[in-house]
Simulated assay, not measured.
Amino acid sequence: MTRAGARVSLYVSTPVATAGDADVGSRPDDGSRGGRARPAAEPLRLLPLARATGTPVWVDVHDYDGEADYHRPFLEAADAVFCNADRLDDPVAFLRSRVAAGASLAVCTLGADGAVAVDGYGTVHRVPAVPVEVVDTNGAGDAFLAGVLDARLDGADVPAALEAGARTAASVLRSRHLHPLLDAVLDAGRGAS
Rank of each mutant, 00 (worst) to 15 (best):
V99M: 04
N138Q: 10
V24I: 13
A41Q: 02
V107S: 06
V116L: 12
D65W: 00
L162I: 09
R7Y: 03
G114P: 09
H71R: 00
L178R: 14
V8K: 05
E76F: 01
D157A: 15
T109C: 10
V12I: 15
P15V: 04
H179G: 11
P73M: 02
Y121I: 11
E133Q: 10
L75W: 01
V124M: 06
D150A: 13
D21G: 15
A17K: 07
F74G: 02
R36K: 13
E67G: 03
P131T: 10
Y121D: 14
V61N: 01
F94K: 01
V99G: 01
Y121Q: 11
G139D: 12
V107T: 10
P73D: 00
A19F: 11
D63C: 01
A78I: 01
A140L: 06
H62W: 10
A100R: 10
A151I: 07
V107Y: 04
A188R: 13
L47V: 04
A37M: 14
N84L: 05
V148L: 09
S175Y: 11
V107Q: 00
L88R: 03
A50N: 06
V16D: 15
R72G: 00
E163N: 11
A170R: 09
V135K: 11
P28V: 03
D60Q: 06
V148K: 08
L95Y: 12
L44V: 03
